[in-house]
Nucleic acid binder design. Structure first.
Lengths: 226, 226
DNA sequence: TATTAATGTTAGGCATTCATAACTTAGTTC
DNA sequence: GAACTAAGTTATGAATGCCTAACATTAATA
């Protein structure tokens, strides 16, 4: 069972909408993909035959476990490609998103895997000065640092400053998966999501772990939340 | 006027066949793309309407100047992607070729350009030892070296040795565009084309220019040939 | 030159993927 | 609960891009 590009698009759209809104309607999918509702309907019949979704007349659309697995694969491919284009190649975010949408359908699993490895190996050192100056991007989850410099051009700089990311600010990395973007950081008690490319412009002086800020401590808190 | 993926494939195929065989027939295109002759016929009508080719009934297919320009763009995209996949990501040659075929249709001109820059900047240092041992791949056009070691696995090693590329052999680089693949070298007076990935396995001791082998001299000879 | 083989063309059909138009259902509002 | 609105569905058709079958032309060979 191989999915056509179109069917992959539909499946991915359903998956993404489900992540945000709990109920997935025909309308939502049509809107997201810029197609008519009858088109979505046709695709749903197709996907249901392949056992990837469940859809009763006039009801919400649901992913089957198989569908979820498949959609996750597609979404991962998409993310990998987007990250590669924007972080390494330097394509602007919007274009990267657009092209990733198209490339994701034609990249084989093997190549995706190799590309992932490649990115993991190269993304840490895209800037020559990264060996000298540490940035927010380099922080491990749980680690902290104090912003000493904002090395971003005009608009991006303004955006970061508006978010309260000024020199002197204490930043704590919350979540930073190898290919995760955006990353999550904590500033003055509130959580912020910023792009990796932005985090990389925030030069920091390292702030060694303080009472209440060690890795072990945080892990403890995390498990309490369950 | 935008070409569909299919039409790009046909145009590229015609271009590639023309480079090798002078006369392009319907049959050749059908064979190369794995489609039936009627399918090619349909595509030809389409391409002729777009003014990219000329094709009289029962005659050979010819590219118009516009068609040549367009085909070159596609071929370049293809090459860039293939090189990227095989040289940087480490995908095997066959797969790289296959995937390049598909990705070439969905990569925008802007991204292609950025990707080209990226490759140019990164391709020179893909192997950690390239700083220590010089390979045939590192030779500038006109420069020479003597093979001291073949650092290739079984089959590739055999192929290279069959071509006469044995330790002790004097090699001269002829053509090596930044993203060109295969590259052209000269061995014992005859010209050879080998893949960049192969050239990179041929370790050399540099052979500084000898009488009759300087750049200036070669240029002289070249112009005599006209 | 007649026959055969290879190549090319036309006609017609099928699958995919989209659309519009017309109708149905569910939910909301008065 | 009747009327309205939003959402969903069905029917039908157009554009691509491929195919097979049948026919036409050109080239090769006896």
């Amino acid at each position: 069972m191989t999915l056509s590009s179109s069917m992959e698009d539909y499946l991915e759209a359903i998956f993404e909408i489900a992540k945000k809104t709990s109920a997935v309607r025909v309308r939502d999918v049509a809107k997201r993909l810029g197609v008519s509702m009858p088109s979505v309907n046709g695709a749903l019949k197709n996907l249901e035959t392949s056992n990837l979704i469940r859809h009763e007349k006039y009801e919400y659309i649901e992913l089957t476990p198989e569908g979820t697995v498949e959609a996750e694969k597609i979404a991962t491919r998409h993310r990998i490609i987007r990250v590669f284009l924007s972080e390494l190649v330097g394509v602007d975010d919007e274009t990267a998103e657009e092209e990733a949408c198209r490339i994701e359908h034609v990249l084989s699993p093997g190549t995706t895997e190799k590309l992932t490895d490649y990115i993991e190996q190269n993304i840490k050192r895209p800037f020559p000065h990264s060996a000298h100056k540490k940035t927010v991007n380099d922080l491990e989850p749980g680690a902290r640092g104090i912003i000493s410099e904002i090395n971003a051009p005009g608009i991006m700089r303004q955006k970061l400053m508006d978010l309260g990311l000024l020199p002197g600010t204490l930043v704590e990395m919350v979540r930073s998966a190898p290919l995760g973007d955006p990353i999550q950081i904590k500033v003055r008690g509130t959580s912020l999501a910023i792009r990796r490319s932005e985090a990389r412009t925030l030069i920091i002086e390292e702030d060694t772990d303080e009472p209440g800020g060690t890795h072990r401590y945080r892990h403890g808190r995390k498990s309490e939340q369950r």
